[in-house]
Every structure is written in C-alpha cells, then in structure tokens.
Design a protein around this nucleic acid. Sequence first.
RNA 1: GCGGGCGUGGCGGAAUGGCAGACGCGCUGGUCUUAGGAACCAGUGGGCGACCGUGCAGGUUCAAGUCCUGUCGCCCGCACCA
Length: 800
Amino acid sequence: MAYDYKNIEPKWQKIWEEKHAFEAKNDYSLPKYYALVEFPYPSGQGLHIGHPRPYTAIDIIARKKRMEGYNVLFPIGWDAFGLPTENYAIKTHIHPAVITKNNIAHFKEQLKKLGLSFDWSREINTSSPEYYKWTQWIFLKLFEKGLAYKKEMSVNFCTSCKVVLANEEVVGGVCERCGGEVVHKVKSQWMLKITEYADRLIDDLKDVDFIERVKTQEINWIGRSYGAQVNFKTSEADEITVYTTRPDTLFGATYMVIAPEHALVDKWKDKISNYAEVAAYREAAAKKSDFERTEMAKDKTGVKLEGVFAVNPVNGNRIPIFVSDYVLATYGTGAIMSVPAHDSRDREFAKKFGLPIVEVVAGGDVEKEAFTDVETGKMVNSGFLDGMEVAEAKKAIIAWLTEKGIGQAKTNYKLRDWVFSRQRYWGEPVPLVYCEKCGWVPIPESELPLVLPNLDRFEPTEDGESPLAAATDWVNTTCPHCGGPAKRETDTMPNWAGSSWYFLRYCDPHNDKALASKEALDYWMPVDWYNGGMEHVTLHLLYSRFWSKFLYDLGIVPCKEPYKKRTAHGMILGENGEKMSKSRGNVINPDDIVEEYGADTLRLYEMFIGDFEKSAPWSPSSIKGCKRFLERVEGLMYLAKGTGTTPKLERSFHKTIKKVTEDIDSMKFNTAIAAMMSLVNEINDAGAMTVDELKTLVKLLCPFAPHLAEELWSRLGETELASLAKWPEYDEAKTVDDTVVIALSVQGKPKDTVEIPLDADEDTAFAAAMKSEKFASLLEGKQIVKKIYVKNKILNVIVK
RNA sequence: GCGGGCGUGGCGGAAUGGCAGACGCGCUGGUCUUAGGAACCAGUGGGCGACCGUGCAGGUUCAAGUCCUGUCGCCCGCACCA
C-alpha cells in the first residue's frame, strides 16, 4: 500500500487535538521547558514557505523534550495589530478586525496542517482587548516610572504609509515595510526611554546563550562608546560642548563643527556676519531625506560661521567654527572638535576648506591619510602629553580636564529613545488623556482596557493626524484627576508593543487579574529556547528585552533576561537562489507542498535542506528524496519481525540514537536526518529487523515526521501516543565497534587502510599494517625514522 | 568605511587537526514493466596511471577544508555616531 499521508495526517492531527496531547501542564513541580517561536503576523498572503522552517525546528526541540519527560510549553499566537491590515482595510472598507479574524483563521488552518505540537489552549491575539488591556497596563507603568514621555521632536515620517517610524524601522533611508521615502517631521511623540537600559542591554548579554551574530548586532546597534565631553570657550558668552572618543588628540583640534540644527546658530544670529548663507545651508540640509543624506555622504559640505570663533582650551589657539551636516544633531552634543590629522572625515573636510592639519600622534603619515591607530602611536606636539601612549594620554587629559572643570569622561550611545506613537487606527490606544489643567493624566486601571472605538474610515489625515481624531465621542472625555473636560490621546502604539511581552502572557494567558500570575512566571520564565529571524534583532528582540527588564525591576518578571537561548534560522530562497517574491515569480506555496508531498515530507525536507542557520535555495527535486525516505521507513513494517535486537544492527542503533539525540540539541537537524537515512539503508542491506528496533526508529523519527510516526506506532500495536513515548536511550559502550579501520600513512600521506581491534596499541597496529602489501612495499629498504600512531585514527610512518 | 559570516563535486551540503566529499538530489547503466517523470539494484570528484584535488599565495605541523599571515570574491547588518 502506498504511503497514504493524505489520510494519515488529518487523522493524527485530530487525535492529538482530542487528547489535548500537547497542552502544557499547570503542575509546577515538574521539570519545565519553554520553547518559543516568533508568533506570526497574520498577513493576507497566508503562511510563507519560510515559516515552517523555524517552526518545525523548535517543534522538534519541544517534541523531544516532551518525550524526555519535561513539562513543555510550546505556545503560539498572533501578532495581529499592524499596518498591512490597516492599509488593506482602507482599500476595501472592511474593518481591520474582520480582516484580522479571517487571516488568523486561514493561518491557523495552515499551521494545524503542519502537525506542529503547539499548545492551542494558550493561543493569544495582541489585538484582542483581553490582551491589549495588559499592553496598556505596562504602558501606564512606564508612564508612572517616567520612562514614557511626550516630546516635540524631529521624527522619521514615511510619506507613503503616512506614519511615524522608529529609527529601527528606517532601513537604508527608506521605510522598512513599504520602501517609501522617509522625511523628517517635527511632531509631538510618545517616547520610551530605552536608553536608560542601554548599559544593561549590552552587559547582560554575557549571561545568555545567544548566537554570536545576534549579540554583536545588538551591541553595535546600541553603539556604546567611551570618551569625554569638553567645553570650548568662544568669542561669545556661550561655550560649545563637544563629545569626543579621542580627548587625547585635543592639541590637534584645529576647528570645530556644529550640526546645522544646533541652537547656537539661532542664538548667534546677530553675531554671524554671513548668517544668510548659514541659514540657506541649514534649510537645504533639513530638506534632505534620510536617503539623500546617506547618498551624499561622501561629499563634505559646510559653511564657516564668520564673526565668531572658539578657543582650544589646551593651547589657547583661536579656531574657526563651521556648520556641516556631517555632524548629527541627534548624537553626542551635536558639536565636535575636529582633529583632521587623526580622523578621516575631519581630514576630508579640512582638505576641502584648507584648514591646518596638526599631527599629535606620531606613527603614521598625516600628509597622506588620517592616522587613527590607537595601539602604536606616541603623543607629539601635545605639551604635557608628549611621549605618552594614546591610552595613557586619554587618562591624563581627562584628569586634567576634570581638574580644570572644563570637561569630564562621558559614555555615549548610538541608541535613541524609542518613538512610540503612531498616527494610525489599528493599534493599541494609548491610555492617557490630556487635561488643560492637569496635563497628561493616566486613565484609572479599572478602566482598562481602553477599547479601540469602531470607525468606518481608517485613513490618517493628510498632515498625519491619527484617524482616531475623528471619533469625537471617544476623544472628548473627562479628566480622571480634576473631572474637567479632557481629550484622549489619539495616537496608537506601534505594532512592536504587543510583541514586547507576549512570551509572558503565554505563561498564564487567561488571567484577568494580572498580565500573568506570579507563580506562572516564576515557573515558566525564562524562555529556554527562542528562535527567530535576524531581521528582528534590533527591533523586537531589543524591545522585548527592554520591557522584560523593566518588568523585572517592578518585581513582576523573575529573571533579568527573558530568553536563555536565542538562535536564528536562515531564509528559504527561491529555486534560483534569490529571495522569494511575487515579482521574481519564485514563490513556493506551502499548501501546494503539503498537498503534493504531505506535511511530514515538508517538515523533513525543510530540516534536511542544509545548515539551519544559513539560507538555502528551495529544490523541487530534492524534496522527493525526503518522501522516498519516509516511504522506505513505512516499508520496514513488512520487514520487522520478532522482539529483541538484530545482532548486525545493534551497534548501528546505539550510534544512531546518540547521533540524533545530540544533533537535535545542537540544531544539526540535517545530519540527524542523514543518520536515520543511513540506518534505514543498513537495515535494508541487512534484510531483517525486529519490531522492537522499528519502534526505536519510529520514536527517533517522531519529532521530525510525527504523523507517520504515530501511524506506524499504532500499527505496531501501541495504544498510547508515540509523541508522548519515552525518548530512546543508548549505551555509550555500544556506540563503537570492536574493530576500527585506521589509515596507514607514509610521510604523512595516506596510502592504505587496515582493520584492527578497537584501542589496539602501536605494535599491534604496526604488525597489522605490515600485512598490507602496499604499505609494506613502501617501507622496503627504507629506514623508519619515526612512527606516529593515533589510536583508532591513523598510523603514520616517516622513512628515510 | 566599520561589524558579522561564508567560499568544498553538476546541485543542497558532511567532515573533535588524522582515509575530503557522509546523507540527499541529479546523472549513467541495469532489473521489472504495454509504458514510466514509479519502484528496486549497481556506479558516480578529476586523471589510463604514478598521482592531483576544499577561492588564491605563503606558513605552522609527522599530518591542514580545519590553525596562522596575506590576498581575492560573495552574502548580511550598520553606515558621516566624532
């Protein structure tokens, strides 16, 4: 009978559901394991062929842990607020809630067909009031603790989505989602003080098991640097404060640059003799979009502020001041001291404007290029610093600046506070009201959730006001503080809000008294293994670590870091090796694959396709090999007879159990499958196996191809589920053979092989080697200089 | 420019410093078939060979895909962050 996946798969999916087989137990005395995948955004396109890869991988981990006796939490839900749904609603005039409901139903059906062992009883939806009640609650706590504040500021604005974007959402100067042009707009925005957690977000990474590229990307994004702030006196009453990582080069500062937006430009309006020129430059800089600004990055432009100057505090030199857009208003103090001899950007600018280049660190050739090496240089032309190494000079100058009261050590970050407002409908309402008398006032906790009012138009206004502004009945309210008239905040939260704490909700998803009970959080947290995409490292991952730390500080979350281990999967590319996209016409639909090959084959293939962490192209022919393998396993039903072990196969089984067990733990799913394939080949060669052995194989296969495993398990007479059977164990002693084939080398080059007893000594090995004609003939008439024998590996002989 | 990663058959990919190419795809030949884009069996890095082969050039070592130095190429992230 042919491999009947079309009947087998729905049959077992139904049984699992009826038996509640994968629901986590609320018995907190059991050893726990929390396995997590990033919950999907239920888009209208349905599941992507890329989804099953990480989902199957963590499903395998969860299934194996379950078979090993752990109380496993492997939950799923929906990251359901977001722009694509809202944009679709605008186009079709269907309410986003309706679209979301339909999309979720579709996704759910698709996911269920894959046989993932999710605990569906804990399903959550970030757009449901029961859930976002607690998102709003966390926001109120952030507000209460001063970590949420409203600020007039220049923000990234996507001209196509008509929405404000966080820095993390601007990629390459354009909108991360739609690729639209991003411009700067000054708007009043809710901000979250993630910068307050910058140090901990870096430092605590040392205590978690994240893959290296995730750690480094987060560290680089936060961008911590150590340096100093220095105050420069000017010709006017005002000082200019700069931030520098190279205070040691202060003697080499020959001019200063301030950002076009710098406040002193306004203040000095009457002092700057060429103000018109400066103002024009400033206006031009403001008009540039982020994209233009990066495009023009190479060419330095700027204007000298005529009529004013600064004074270098170490040598009293009068130095000119420029405005230039290569200095960013948003980093450091928005002003720099320029040391053209030791910074390539400063040098480029100095060359263009004919400014002096003074070498203060010897070791390079500052005529040719900026010398930026901090390891080898020695200080020169620097008064009391002369002769020191760079590191030494840094300390000395900071001490000097501190003593004189004109500067101090300073740590800076590239990370900015998180822009948390969106002028959009389909998001969590911000639970605050504005009262003319009392300012921003939180609504009482008892009024949570603050439910999103029903609208029929979802367009933001042309000038970027939230669609909620039109819901006047909702907007106009009373101040909870003084009882006077007040208006609700009409901006909503960004789509990253709900996902910043969802892993906590899974621990206790139906709780209406708290975001989750203390007991549940204490038991389940932290997440033991979290897998997700690299694209979320500086977004969701960073944000959720921030919120989790905040909740840790409140005593709600029991652990400093929410995720013990974080891995990232590679993408599945189109057949042509390019990213799958509709426009490239290389999209594979998972429904078609499930239809044609079955979910078990899809799962197996996505795990077999290559290194889990690397991207791999889809191959329509390779997937057939995985199906053939499953058919061959099913075929073993007709071969398996009797109980006990087959002597020829016994060691192979122990080896395979060991290999599969270890490879799953280290995410080497491809080699785990290869090992099972080899075993099946061996069984077929042997032409015999026992029922007990087949049961072992079925259990090994179960996490990978659970439907077929259950089917065979029951056909073999078992009445309980294979998915809950005990994971096979191996005997270490039986994972090795009693003989071993070693290589025989002469002069380091392998010439022949010989089979000898395991752990044989050198003399035995050499005696056996001499029985090899080829090997012996190569030694004939030669003098043996040296014998190198590595037990069970190689015998190498050096001759003269 | 900075940070991270990667270069192995026709393809996807295996290899605690110890016989390079496991496993799978594809391909070739065969068996069975009215037929096969099914199944099964055998073979499959190159070269007639001694030998030669892991981007390239060196080095360390008895032994290098693996370690070190340099170099070329590709991918990802950040990008004037002082």
